[in-house]
Design a protein around this nucleic acid. Structure first.
Length: 475
RNA sequence: GGCCCGUUGGUGAAAUGGUUAACACGUUGCCCUCUCAAGGCAAUAUUCAUGGGUUCGAAACCCAUACGGGUCACCA
């Protein structure tokens, strides 16, 4: 069997939507499951949409996710260049071959004529297809118009009768009537190829064996197959992926939560968790497990188990998986994804490393992504705490004032401020006040934190520091 | 509008003709616990968009209808 080679071929827009990332993941998984190669190819054939730094952005995202390409703009291989704008002469050469074979033709139709045709089709409520106006121009006419410097595009000569069929791994047999296939533009008037052309040329030249892409290409694929056939090339295996939608079944957008990988990353989501979650969008493993490392995904991934129906991007489930990964983090890893958010929100200049470590670690299983550390730790950084009615009611119970006074003394008496001594102070307060259980802890917790819930009380008190604790007990 | 694809619980989703329709998220309850989170346990679809048909038997096969999405660019 030939070597399996897949590719991720984004256009450099400077933005990586989770749906795009998912395509990259699936392409990577198919390659690696078969010990194959995964390549990155930049499809920058639209000159009007160039974005500065977009290639680095894509490369960074893939690297962060562990989806390092074997070949690509930053990973030279034997099939380069891997940026389409650097391959222009190749496309021109193959377009010429097509013309010689009668499988493509020059078209001089201008915008104006095309627009008119489109409007007419619109009025008649029939789908617009280019009418082949320039298909049968004589060699002489073409030569003179070319010599006159007229603008032209090159169109693919599509068969008009019969049907085209192909087999897709996830959607099965796809049949499209040939009369519905447009003589699509292969080479634009600016000399750049369209996606429709470059994609086929490159996939063949780069020996891509499996084409993995969104299902918006499902119906266009027969056109690409005709290109392969014209050249006598072997066609790749097609794996079209279901769309990724938001919870309302509509196209994914900002209002469905962070739909861009970098937004998630910036919020302190873990790339491996995101990859894990995205791998489950439209695919289910044979087992009932859902938590997988990249290595496990490589091992278990089977494109035959990809769904046809659209996948729904569900932030709740992402949060669950991310929280699951967060619990297993080492302290240093945890610091790495939380501290930047703390620094951003609070003044940490008077806190030492141990203090921050302790703070972050007691909240490790309270948060599902890094940025959540900010809200949850607010009580350590604000000067005033305000009590709600429930807290006030609790404090108004008999014996509470006595308990607080006793506890305050015990806190005052602590010489060496550590968790063990704080624990000891609580125990002494318990003995001296006669309060226990909830009536012991809760009044202290409320006085000190202003809340009826939170992590272990001694840890919390330790982190607040002796002065603040005494201050709050005095109020 | 033409063409293509889809439709299983609050959500994702398994099961590709044969006992009580997996599993997970969420939700609710219980346990643990000062509390919250985590963790453990339990509950949560007389039913697979609707209507016909095929079959001894259908969520699964066929046909129609409805709804949702995709596609019809010198964008990818």
């Amino acid at each position: 069997m030939e070597k399996v080679r897949t590719r991720f071929a984004p256009s450099p827009t400077g933005y990586m939507h989770v749906g795009n990332l998912r395509s990259a993941i699936f392409a990577y998984l198919v390659a690696k499951h078969n010990n194959g190669d995964f390549l990155l190819r930049i499809e920058d054939t639209d000159q009007t949409r160039q974005v500065e730094g977009a290639v680095d952005f894509i490369v960074n995202t893939l690297n962060l996710c562990g989806l390092t390409p074997d070949e690509g703009p930053n990973h030279p291989g034997n099939y380069g260049p891997y940026v389409q704008s650097e391959r222009l002469s190749i496309y021109q050469e193959y377009a010429q071959k097509l013309i010689e074979m009668g499988k493509a033709y020059y078209c001089f139709c201008d915008e104006e004529r095309l627009t008119k045709l489109r409007e007419k089709a619109d009025l008649e409520k029939i789908p617009f297809l280019y009418d082949g106006h320039c298909k049968n121009l004589s060699k002489e006419e073409i030569a003179t118009r070319l010599k006159n410097g007229e603008k032209y595009v090159i169109r693919q000569a599509m068969p008009k009768d019969g049907v085209s069929e192909y087999e897709d791994i996830v959607y099965g047999k796809i049949t499209v009537e040939n009369k519905l296939l447009e003589d699509q533009i292969l080479l634009k008037s600016d000399g750049y190829p369209t996606y429709n052309f470059a994609n086929v040329i490159d996939d063949h030249l780069m020996e891509i064996s499996h084409v993995i892409r969104g299902n918006e290409y499902l119906m266009a694929t027969p056109k690409y197959n005709h290109l392969y056939d014209s050249f006598g090339w072997e066609k790749p295996v097609y794996i079209h992926l279901p769309m990724v939608n938001g919870g309302d079944g509509k196209k994914l957008s900002k209002r469905h939560g962070s739909a861009s990988f970098m937004d998630l990353y910036d919020d302190g989501y873990l790339p491996e968790a995101v990859v894990n979650y995205l791998s489950l969008l439209g695919w289910t493993p044979e087992t009932t497990d859902e938590v997988f490392t990249l290595e496990e995904l490589i091992k278990y991934f089977d494109p035959k188990r990809i769904n046809k129906s659209p996948a729904i991007y569900d932030v709740k489930k992402l949060n669950w998986i991310n929280a699951h990964y967060m619990k297993k983090l080492s302290i240093n890893q945890l610091l790495a994804i939380t501290v930047p958010h703390l620094e951003n929100a609070y003044d940490l200049s008077d806190k030492n490393k141990q203090w921050i470590e302790k703070l972050v670690s007691i909240y490790q299983n309270h948060i599902s992504y890094g940025k959540e550390i900010v809200d949850v730790t607010a009580l350590f950084f604000k000067d005033h705490i305000s009590l709600d009615d429930e807290c006030r009611d609790f404090l108004s119970q008999d014996g509470v004032n006595n308990l607080i006074n006793i506890f305050k003394e015990e806190i005052e008496n602590i010489k060496d401020w550590n968790v063990e001594n704080i624990n000891q102070a609580i125990i002494l307060a318990k003995e001296k006040s006669g309060m226990k259980g909830k009536m012991l802890y809760m009044p202290i917790r409320i006085k000190v934190t202003g809340q009826m819930h939170g992590p272990e009380l001694p840890d919390t008190i330790y982190l607040l520091g002796q002065n603040i604790v005494l201050n709050r007990l005095n109020k």
